[in-house]
């Protein structure tokens, strides 16, 4: 019990560890949904929900915005398509023109099979890299891992975190809000 409160006790004279934010545990998905809607209405910006499985309607309750990932994918795919056609044109029609079986130097149908997989390849690789970048990966540690309670987020725990950097964050008021929303436990997570 006490361990989760502060794993690393502040040493006298050392700088006080900055708080990451508040972690609240809710008993079931319904309570999490209600809490998410209420926290959003209270005007919080930097907060998140954690559950062991996807919960229908949670993204709507949180008013999550559509990811910008598709635009990266589109850019990557377009680049792939263009690059394939440009290289094929440069090699076959411009730098080293050769006649193959009576075909014109530059024939679009012949080059679509190259453009198609390259479109997909560039799109897929961009998706992968952009997803990592947008999600802030790779990342070796996260303050939430200091909390022993949070380990249950992958089995049977339903959590909300509100970060200390949120403009609406106030230790006493936010704790009270989370309690009022039905949180079983609220704890401060320190960022060391």
């Amino acid at each position: 019990m006490a361990m989760s409160q502060n794993i690393i006790s502040p040493v006298a004279g050392a700088a006080e560890p900055t708080p990451y934010g508040l972690l609240a545990e809710f008993p079931d998905p319904q309570a999490l949904l209600r809490a998410a809607a209420a926290i959003r209405q209270a005007g919080y910006r930097r907060w998140d929900c954690y559950s062991p499985f996807p919960i229908h309607g949670l993204d709507r309750a949180m008013r999550l915005k559509r990811s910008v990932l598709p635009w990266f994918v589109f850019g990557g795919a377009f680049t792939g398509c263009f690059a394939a056609l440009a290289v094929a044109w440069f090699c076959n029609a411009y730098a080293y023109p050769l006649i193959f079986s009576g075909k014109p130097y530059w024939g679009l149908p012949a080059n679509i099979p190259v453009a198609f997989p390259l479109t997909i390849l560039f799109g897929a690789v961009t998706t992968f890299l952009a997803l990592w970048a947008l999600a802030g990966l790779p990342r070796l540690h996260h303050p939430l891992f200091f909390s022993a309670r949070f380990r249950r987020a992958t089995t049977d725990g339903f959590f909300v975190t509100i970060e200390a950097t949120d403009p609406c964050y106030d230790l006493a008021a936010t704790t009270q809000l989370l309690r009022r929303l039905g949180a079983q436990a609220v704890e401060v997570v320190k960022d060391c």
Partner: peptide, 12 residues
Amino acid sequence: AFAQYMLIWYAN
């Protein structure tokens, strides 16, 4: 549609 067109175009 394209697979058919390209093969026919290529084989001639």
